[in-house]
């Protein structure tokens, strides 16, 4: 049995989730605190992947990063990045595609904290970053966890975007969800069943974790 697609899926999900966590925290913090008029537009852009068909995203990605046009060519030559039909491209597309699943929980977690916590920390002479990392984030651990788990699960379940951007290159960009499709097309139901079962179990476990944590069932282990 070829384990490659499963490894690629996992690698993609882990890398995407890690990068998303790093970029979503400042984004969510900004969204909660900003009085800028651009906020609704930025929020809309972040939420778009929730409703937009993945193929739309994939299509524009292909157009933008194809070495055939100036922008894609420039990225290729100057940064040495080939974003079409490569793992790097998959990661970038997945980040955009799963962004709302990470930003939204963190944003709502931060926004329900009383404002006086931030102010108390400021009065004590603490900087914004110290306040964020020592006071605010530790008090919305469940939101952070929800974000991490949802972004991970959503990346595992991608199909349209990764197919268009990655192009299903075995051992490089062929993730498990695409492998299932390919195996079914080739009438290899056994192999398809194998990938499908593994994905089923992973997503079930991951989502179960969210509900266990948010329902307070794991409070004893997570203080």
């Amino acid at each position: 049995m070829n384990w490659d697609p499963l490894f690629i899926t996992l690698k993609l999900a882990v890398v995407t989730t890690a990068i998303l966590l790093v970029i979503s925290i400042p984004m969510a913090y900004w969204l909660v605190n900003t009085k800028s008029r651009s906020k609704p537009f930025i929020e809309t852009l972040i939420s778009m992947p929730l409703v937009l068909p993945p193929t739309v995203l994939g299509f524009y990605f292909l157009v933008a990063f194809s070495p055939g046009n100036a922008f894609g060519n420039w990225i290729n030559e100057w940064l040495g990045l080939k974003l079409v039909f490569s793992f790097g491209g998959l990661v970038l597309a997945s980040i955009i595609y799963s962004l709302p699943f990470m930003v939204h929980p963190i944003q709502s977690g931060l926004s329900i904290l009383p404002h006086s916590l931030t102010e108390a920390s400021q009065v004590m002479g603490k900087s914004k970053w110290t306040t964020l990392f020592k006071v605010l984030l530790p008090n919305c651990k469940t939101s952070l966890l929800t974000g991490i788990v949802l972004a991970f699960a959503h990346t595992v379940g991608e199909f349209g975007v990764v197919l268009m951007i990655g192009g299903s290159i075995p051992g490089k960009t062929k993730v498990a969800s695409i492998a299932i499709y390919d195996e079914v097309e080739a009438m290899n139901y056994g192999a398809a069943n194998f990938y499908a079962t593994v994905l089923f179990i992973i997503t079930f476990c991951v989502l179960l974790m969210v509900y266990l944590i948010n329902g307070g069932y794991l409070k004893r282990f997570w203080k």
């Binding site: 009383p114 006086s116 916590l117 102010e119 108390a120 400021q122 009065v123 002479g125």
Partner: peptide
């Protein structure tokens, strides 16, 4: 900034 004022503040909700 509040950070540079050396103030003790007790909030209504204690914070």
């Amino acid at each position: 900034a509040p950070q540079n004022r050396n103030i003790g503040y007790v909030f209504q909700d204690y914070a």
